[in-house]
Simulated scan of single mutants.
Amino acid sequence: MTQEVLICGSMAFDTIAVFDGRFKEHILADRIHMLSVSFLVPQMRREFGGCAGNIAYNLKMLGGAPVPVATIGEDAVDYLDRFKEMGIETRHLRVVPQTFTAQCFITTDLDDNQIAAFHPGAMEHSADNEVNAQNAAWAIVAPDSKAGMMAHVEKLAKTQTSVMFDLGQAMPLFNGEELLEVIKQVDALALNDYEASVVEERTGQSIQELANNLQAIVVTRGCEGADLYTAQGKQSIAPVPATEIVDPTGCGDAHRAGLLFGLTQGMGWEKACMLGNVLGSIKIASRGPQNHVFTRDHIEALLQKTYNQSL
């Protein structure tokens, strides 16, 4: 029986519009105090997103058993239907009445500049969502409302389930003291290189010092691969070259899914990091966080080619 993985985090809709011009030609520096602009956006798409949703999508495609834990609005019917069709467990997806699902509205110009607005909606109620880790081998607390992340860490710390903490976009919400309190209660951290430097600055401890008291800390470095920190020291995991670079949105979530799948399959941290790198390289070649597809044979081939490893 495939072991379940609890995925606490956000589920959201991303609406991306493309302006066929440049913002700088319409936003005048001497008129910024009275800004009023409108952009014609002939291209627009809506994506399924949110960290919990993205991780669950990738983990399911690997053959795992994700159980997303999130609060969603009354407008999430199609998201629920999508997950049910994929066979993703939805028992911990709580619909909050009279709210919208969290959503981000992004307008991009020809220079890849972005103007974004984020509505948290139902995500603000995530702390009230119950977590049952009875059948879970691992759990991850991914970006969500701060109250929700703190509540889920505290609840999961009282169980026998191993817990990974993914700071991500919630980084500005936590001070050093709060980060240290969280780190005391979890088994592993997943960070990108910028987040790792902020954690060091705010806690006053190096990533290696923090890793000495955890199972592991994984620091992703984009096209440079990842670094794995354990009590035995630091190990660099080589990158997997992407066929093309299209969109980095959701690459971190894909990497987390690879990590979690590897750990539930008994691969160990090094090999799980390799699998994470493979998924990140696949995701970046596709636009949107949940549009890429892959097979186990494809994953196997990339692992063999890059690391001489197999699933």
Rank of each mutant, 00 (worst) to 15 (best):
V246P: 10
Q265A: 04
Q265V: 03
L275F: 02
G276Y: 02
C273K: 04
T264W: 01
L210T: 10
G276I: 09
E181N: 14
V163Y: 06
P239R: 12
W269S: 03
I183H: 07
K271Y: 00
V218H: 11
A196S: 11
A170M: 07
G252W: 10
Q235H: 12
L210G: 08
A170E: 13
M164Y: 00
C273I: 06
M274A: 11
Q235W: 06
A190V: 15
A211V: 03
L259N: 08
N277Y: 00
L275G: 00
L210A: 09
Q235F: 08
T220C: 08
K234S: 05
A231F: 07
F174Y: 10
L214F: 08
L191V: 05
N213V: 09
L260Q: 01
D253H: 08
E224N: 14
N277I: 04
L210N: 06
Q265K: 13
G280K: 02
A188D: 11
R256I: 15
L228F: 08
G276H: 02
P239N: 03
N213R: 14
L191A: 01
C251F: 09
G204P: 04
W269N: 09
E224V: 07
V199S: 11
D166R: 03
L167C: 06
L279P: 01
V246S: 13
A257R: 01
V278I: 10
H255C: 14
G222H: 06
E178R: 11
V246F: 10
G266Q: 05
G258W: 00
A226P: 02
T161R: 08
A242G: 11
E200G: 07
T230M: 11
W269E: 11
P239G: 05
C223K: 15
Q232C: 06
L179A: 02
S206R: 09
V198H: 11
A190T: 12
T264R: 01
D247V: 03
V219E: 08
V182I: 15
P248K: 04
R221A: 15
A226H: 02
G276P: 02
S236K: 12
G266E: 04
R202S: 01
T220F: 10
G222F: 09
Q235R: 15
L228A: 03
V186Y: 00
H255N: 12
